[in-house]
Nucleic acid binder design. Sequence first.
DNA 1: GTGAAAGCGCTAACAG
DNA 2: CTGTTAGCGCTTTCAC
Lengths: 349, 349
Amino acid sequence: MSNATGGRRENGGKQTTMRDVAVAAGVGLGTVSRVFSNVGSVAPATREKIEAAARELNFRPSALGRDLKRRTTNNIGLIVTDISNNFYGEFAQGVLASAKEQGRHVILCASGEDPETEREYIDLLVEQRVDGIIAFPTGHNLDSWRSARDLGINIVFADRELPDLDIPSIVVDNEAGARRLTEYLLALGHSRIGYLGGPSELTSGGQREAGYRQAHLDVGVAVKEDLVVRTRFTRDTAYASALRLLENPVPPTALVATNNVLGEAALTAIRDRGLSVPDDISLVMFDDVPWANLVEPPITVVAQPAWQMGQSATRMVLAADGEKVQPQTVKTEMVLRRSARPLHSSAPA
Amino acid sequence: MSNATGGRRENGGKQTTMRDVAVAAGVGLGTVSRVFSNVGSVAPATREKIEAAARELNFRPSALGRDLKRRTTNNIGLIVTDISNNFYGEFAQGVLASAKEQGRHVILCASGEDPETEREYIDLLVEQRVDGIIAFPTGHNLDSWRSARDLGINIVFADRELPDLDIPSIVVDNEAGARRLTEYLLALGHSRIGYLGGPSELTSGGQREAGYRQAHLDVGVAVKEDLVVRTRFTRDTAYASALRLLENPVPPTALVATNNVLGEAALTAIRDRGLSVPDDISLVMFDDVPWANLVEPPITVVAQPAWQMGQSATRMVLAADGEKVQPQTVKTEMVLRRSARPLHSSAPA
DNA sequence: GTGAAAGCGCTAACAG
DNA sequence: CTGTTAGCGCTTTCAC
């Protein structure tokens, strides 16, 4: 039975089909279908015969024929930025878990934050006739999204909202999260608080920056504009931006990073400059990634419930047709650790 | 054009098909197909007419019909353990990159190391008629794998080899990696070196343990059997195992962890016991995850080229039919940092 | 260069 | 309960 073609069968013959099984079992095609789709009813004896024949022929029904007929695929598309980023990984685990629960498959795509790549993936998923798409959109390709939506594909955006598109999204309470982080630093006596954030066109970017500013406003401390830096989420540019922030003539005494990539860049830059957290500079960030609690000192963060968000997004995108899907905002949780201390004190916070 | 059904269109009508486009453009169905599949040739004027009609109707070809006819899906399945683990995330990025290059889609599955879940996913992927499957197998479900293979699906295993299955795999040089880590510790004067590893049924587990033992053998130091602990890769059990290792009546002076989950568990356990690295205990591990270089002291690791492995695995699984696919072993790289020091010295290594 | 026709593997009526 | 039939949307001969 086994040969040495390295796991590859020539498979010259056609695959076994329901028709073959029907012939082998001496029944009609429809009856075989009824057995494998668990619909209608078949006499126990017939079912037996069919199952025996199927086993004999190593028959496995093909989703291709089924899906074409049923006009639904049970597949959903998931477009993230970078699946090696723990936040997206957790989110994806949430999606996988609830997709599996509902018998759905997940086609994974990584846009790398590149609009062109995103467009290609949208087209691809449309061609595949996925039942739905969950995406962290780049903010571009509005036409593609609209077109996919009009084709009847259910779409849910995560983390970011797109204007004029009437597509529901699931986001965290960005403003509140950033505000609490900033308030905390302000309360510790800091007044030169650096902000390392993403592009403000993105919902998360804009809202987190707004929270940062609101916190300042609330206590009447002016935002130092040269301490507000927006950057793309790649390691290199983030690192360069963090460094620039630290090289300010009058450097910040505290830093808010709005996600884990930015936080990692900030921490690395701080170390490379020979500074120490929290003695020389306090650091807080978004995302409770594993390393946040492993570094010394452990980092105070605003945690996003990534897994649950993935689960909710899946439920939203799979909601019964006709059911109205409401946008959802989820709460963040602030986890106090030891990466910030009062400005004019030698004791940790 | 826009309504308020939350990104969901009733889509009562059927989708636009090639036939509709053909009618609208006043040409035959076959001609439309030729335009969209870029095969044969069509008069520029005709092509123009067709493209205009397609645009007008917002037509997108369906992969369902195409795949059914062509008997190939351009999809590949990827079964990892846990996509939120950075190692699998990097691997997946590599898979996605080269899959995209070749116009393939990736169906993602996470087995959670559970054989039953794995079996369900294999069945699912077979039904979907994926062109190939890349998997980190649990080590069970040999029948399912065999059956999938016999159905003509190309399979590539990663990280682990399964006996009697004649399925090619891509693994790192586990034995050498573990041996170097252990030799390094031995050279530093350690003789009570703890081993925190995975189940030895797994290729990686068995080989890494073998490397650990070989290093001892080479210098004539006896392995302390009560310092060898095998555990499952979940956070909780790994932590418990690490703790047990540290609570040995005569505790180890150094520790080898065979992946990042185990390394994280070890580091956490060490801290929780109030010990410090490397002064109280040296720690080295597999996987150059981001946090390895972020903690203090940074951890000495054996790095696996996860991204490239994903890329290679994809090439292997997509190799031209008839081409013989060779199993592949990839080299690891040892990255020296500061988490180990000589046993009887007060200076770091 | 183009149209007509025959299926790919399956489901869903519809008779019997 | 079960067999027959007509497609799902597309590709692919085969004539014209």
